[in-house]
Amino acid sequence: MDYGGDEGRVDMKIVTQSIENSQATLQIEVETAEMDESLDRAYRQLVKKVAVPGFRKGRAPRSVLENLVGRDGLQREALEDMLPRVCARAIEEQNLEVIAQPQIEILELEPVVFKATFPLRPKVELGDYRSIDVAPPSVEVGDEEIESAMNRLRERHAVWSPVERPVAFEDLVTVDVEEELKETGVKKQHQTQKLLVVKGSFFPLPGFVENLEGMEKGGEKEFSLPYPSDYRFKELAGKEYYFRVKLIQVEEKHLPELNDDFVKGLGQSMEDVASLRDSIAAGLKKAAEEIAAREHERKVLQAVTAASKVEFPSILVDQEIDSLL
């Protein structure tokens, strides 16, 4: 884990240490010389960033800068520079398997003494996993699933043909639409829009396609509709529109007949309906087996977890709770 790198050996001593509950707590004292070097580095960084009256940026003496930002400000900058390097050295010396940033508590400033609590790799005590017996689920593919898949295949290869009759549900229509917002009178034109006339459709807004049912090619219709008050686009919610619609064309969907010619046209090295059915059944079974295998794995892991003990570092738990609040 990267704690900011190490610019040579850090002068410090670890006063006390404890390792329990998957976390290591170290009390570390930093030599005065090390802190002095960090204060010098902090001054060199701050003097480039802080505007000091009467001096060009980067030219103010340390005493003047310290009077401006305060001794505490310089110390904070120095600690931010020094603590990551000290922690990195402590981790190396103590051979710790650290998995996240430490929790730091400054105890003294002259000399610098701080307590660092490092979360360590959790200890896992497996239960009697050999006795766990989770039966894998059985996988079956029924005729209804196969028929449904074959019909979906036909739907994907459907064609639309113009018809000379009134609009019915499940048709595809081409319309010119003029919409007018009633409260402002602002109008918009939408030319040659294609709409699928599906009962209960929310596009372009609830109730619109129902008004198209029964219209004939070349016919026109006027009607008004409000957007629902809870419509997902708040700027439209509750607003009422006036529509003028002209029907340009009506098309109906034609599904291909499920026969050997259709199967051959799919270009998948199948010759007849029976081979297509077998292929679909095999594909459905494979997909069902993969889902069943993942579910079985999930249940096994759930059973193993329930039978095991995991010791998490408490500071990680506290950090997660804080992030949720």
Rank of each mutant, 00 (worst) to 15 (best):
Q189Y: 13
V167P: 04
E213F: 09
A168N: 03
K188A: 11
D176T: 09
F203Y: 10
F208A: 04
Q193K: 13
H190S: 08
L205Y: 01
R165T: 10
R165E: 14
L153R: 11
M215K: 05
V159P: 02
E170W: 02
M215A: 08
L205R: 01
E183Y: 08
M215C: 05
E155A: 07
N211G: 09
P204W: 00
E210A: 02
V177N: 05
N211F: 07
E155K: 03
P204E: 00
D171F: 10
P206Q: 12
K199P: 00
E164K: 10
S201W: 03
V177P: 01
W160C: 05
R156S: 05
F169I: 08
L181P: 00
E180A: 04
R154H: 13
E164W: 01
K188Y: 01
V173R: 08
E183C: 05
N211V: 08
P162A: 14
V198S: 02
H190E: 07
Q189W: 13
A158L: 03
G214L: 06
P204C: 00
Q191Y: 07
L153S: 14
E179D: 14
F208N: 01
E155G: 00
D171Q: 09
Q191N: 07
R165F: 12
R156M: 02
R156K: 04
S161W: 03
E164F: 04
A168P: 00
H190D: 07
L153E: 11
L205D: 00
E180H: 01
V163H: 05
P166W: 07
V173A: 13
E170M: 06
V175C: 14
P204S: 01
E183L: 12
K182W: 08
T192I: 11
P162W: 05
T192Q: 15
V186Q: 13
